[in-house]
Design a protein around this nucleic acid. Structure first.
Lengths: 206, 206
DNA sequence: ACGCAAACTTGCGTGCACGCAAGTTTTGCC
DNA sequence: GGCAAAACTTGCGTGCACGCAAGTTTGCGT
């Protein structure tokens, strides 16, 4: 795997990125999304506001990144890890369910926050697009490199389906009272249901 | 059809919207995308800058809207117009090809502009998402209302495929020289190819 | 015809994204 | 070890998106 990056530069970059992410999330949880200025995040992470903007192009993006970081890489790994002989639809579904139902255990409060705020919700759903590229290559590999274009289309469709599942998962949270927000409304089931209609197309690709 | 809206208010709104759209496009074509201030567009349309922002939330959106206006409505019509007995995949493909290959004849210069500017290209591709809702209802109707959720997933997948086709269509434009930009690289073929992998899933929905 | 309520416009203020042109750190090479 | 190029950070300036609270226009019931 392409995993070696002990470059000093690279490590610093990752560190700054993480500092920004976590500062953003922490401040948002402490003071509420609306009361977090970009300047605050930058200061808390020990960099200039301008640098913050070199890493994220919106407050929402930074906050949400604390939860979605590394998801793309995990998707790639999980898909590659599926046994080669099972049908594509099963492989993809399993991989996705696996990644999305193993969140960092400490980010439940974060998900609650995201579910509450419309802007955050939107930003969160947008990050789903990030899995398209890794999915494309993983699926292309499975399809024997013969049809790069088909893989791309199918990956994009899967991505769209996942987005819809997440959308549905977060929607109930907007409901009246507070109760147990972030409904945990069986994300795995939502994902499986969303992916099911695509199975014929996935398995038709030889 | 829900087509009656001769409300005075409604007419004024449409008029303002159109004025803004066309002002934006005209100015962009005349002076180049980078040299168009929001204030200019607003002035050219005869409204305040603040009002401009009530209609569009970015310059790119306004410019691109001049080309994509009413596409959503046309998608709905075209899909509904397909004979009920042909397979879903064929119906959808035909409808989409029809809509995307019948652009306003006078907007070829606009497409050239869009193909040139990365920000505009992005904004243009983003408008594709607008066809998802109409597609969903049109497809749900065909599927006999039995499976609203499936329709949504399939519509989203189709939308993703269309986006990719448009992406490919616009990509060659970034190439070296200028030559015949907006390659007209057979958009219909690109669309058909992009939709083909989804056919099994579309036809599996009963 | 009148008037109230809802919809739309506008000016203002705030925070923000991002290009640009220095400064600063890291790297690779001799 | 030292130095030149590449990568990254930072301050500054500009244009922008959008909330808010008037002001204005349109719709509608009586």
């Amino acid at each position: 795997m392409t995993q070696e990056r002990p470059d000093l530069r690279e490590r610093k970059k990752r560190a700054t990125q993480e500092a920004l992410r976590e500062a953003a999330l922490r401040l948002a949880l402490e003071h509420g999304t609306a009361n977090v200025r970009v300047a605050d995040i930058a200061e808390a992470a020990g960099v200039s506001p301008r640098t913050y903007n070199n890493y994220f192009s919106s407050r929402e993006q930074a906050i949400v990144a604390a939860v979605t970081a590394r998801r793309e890489a995990r998707i790639a790994e999980a898909t590659a890890a599926q046994p080669a002989h099972i049908p594509l639809a099963d492989a993809v579904t399993t991989a996705i369910v696996q990644v999305y139902t193993t969140p960092g255990d400490d980010d439940h409060p974060a998900l609650l926050l995201i579910a509450t705020d419309p802007a955050l919700r939107h930003a969160f759903l947008d990050t789903t697009a990030g899995i398209e590229a890794p999915l494309t290559t993983a699926m292309a590999r499975r399809l024997g490199h013969t049809d790069q274009d088909t893989a791309r289309i199918l990956a994009a469709s899967v991505t769209a389906a996942v987005r819809i599942a997440l959308e549905r998962w977060l929607r109930p949270a907007t409901g009246s009272a507070a109760g147990l927000v972030v409904p945990t409304g069986s994300l795995p089931d939502l994902l499986r249901d969303a992916l099911a209609p695509l199975a014929p197309a996935l398995d038709a690709a030889r």
